[in-house]
Amino acid sequence: MSASPAPTITRFHAEDRQIYWRAAVFPCRILTPVAATAGPPLLVLGGGLQTRHSWTRLEQRLAPHHPMLIPDLPPARAPGGPDLNWDDLTDAAISTLEQAGVQQTAVLAVSSGYPVGYRLAQQHPRRITHLMLFGASPKPAPRLTALIQQGLHHIDQTPCTPHPRARADQAEHLVALLTNPQAAAGNLLMRAAAKVLLQHLLSAPHDPLTAYIRDRGALLLDRPLPPGGISGVPTLVGVGEHDTTTTVADNRAVAATINGAELTVLDHCDHLLHMERDADFAGLVAAFLRPGTSAGIPGCTTETLP
């Protein structure tokens, strides 16, 4: 007689909730630990090529201990809809908190999610207990700027669906820009993360470049880093040592606008550090949410800026 399979232990519950904001409706994935927890929930604001379902590995490590909210904020340039700016998306994030009944939250904002997370802490500092920004830059790098401008031209001139070969070329171009192929030549995890991203883009139902531009790519040309800085919110800014999309210098410049921010540089990864070093990424987030610092994670260096 064969043994029965071991029962699956549910450590958190997941549900999708519809968020109503102005004339838009967008989903938010809400994760609730089974065991009682202390501390604030975590609001996750992903980048332009991520959805609420992009954080499975982080969920497995954090959701048993921290409630999590992962909204799919409205695209900034939806066909037939009004163009949105960074403040609009920040307001949509606040509506997410209000409709989820959350008064205070920690914020994890990655890549093009960072301008929204930054504005949340700047405009609503009493509601944000901790701020974590990964892959931040005062403005897009020249190669990314050129790609965004190319994408805007592509949307205006080519409203129809591109040929599959053209879609594949665009996906490969995006991956090559958002990763560091030269550094990845000697790093298996970096190559694997780039391959996963490429497969995701190729399997998506929409043209990847158009989707990226309409989501938040075009907004990156419009002051992703607002003036005025942040004070009174504990902040961690993180970056991969080989990140060429938002370099160490870029992230340091953003961190320098935040009073008392910590800057952490992770070895052996680039812009996809949350995929390449997922366990250490989750460890940094979990450690920062607890009293103390993020010290103790191997393969990274942390400094506190003035």
Rank of each mutant, 00 (worst) to 15 (best):
I297R: 01
V239H: 10
S294Q: 02
A249P: 09
V285F: 00
V233A: 06
L284V: 00
N259Y: 08
I258P: 05
T257P: 07
R223H: 12
L266Q: 10
V237C: 14
L273P: 08
H274D: 13
A282M: 11
T235Q: 10
P227R: 02
T246D: 15
L263N: 07
T257N: 07
G229H: 03
V233Y: 06
L225S: 05
G296Q: 07
G232H: 05
M275S: 03
L263T: 00
P226L: 09
D270G: 14
L273F: 11
L219K: 02
A255M: 12
G228M: 08
P291V: 03
L220S: 08
E276T: 10
P224C: 06
M275F: 10
L219Y: 03
T245S: 15
D243A: 15
A286V: 01
E241Q: 15
G283N: 04
G238F: 10
I230V: 07
G228K: 08
D243C: 15
V237Q: 04
L273Y: 01
A287D: 02
A249L: 13
G299Q: 03
A255L: 10
V254S: 11
A255V: 15
L272F: 00
A286D: 09
A282Q: 01
P298V: 04
A255E: 08
I297C: 01
T247I: 11
V239Q: 09
A253P: 02
D280A: 14
G299K: 02
V233C: 08
D243T: 12
C269H: 00
T244P: 01
H268Y: 12
R290Y: 01
L266I: 10
M275Y: 08
V265M: 04
A255K: 04
H274M: 13
V248I: 15
A256S: 14
L236M: 14
D222V: 06
L266T: 09
D270L: 11
M275G: 04
A256Y: 06
G217Q: 01
P234L: 13
V237A: 14
P226I: 06
P291L: 04
I297K: 00
H274P: 03
T302D: 12
L236N: 10
V248L: 13
L289Q: 04
I230D: 03
N251C: 15
G296H: 09
V237S: 07
T244Q: 15
R277Y: 13
H242K: 10
L284Q: 00
D222I: 05
T246I: 08
T235E: 12
T301M: 12
L263P: 02
D250Q: 07
A218T: 08
V237K: 03
P291C: 05
V233R: 09
P291A: 04
G296W: 03
V254A: 08
H271A: 14
L273Q: 09
F288K: 08
D267H: 15
D278K: 02
L220T: 12
F281Y: 11
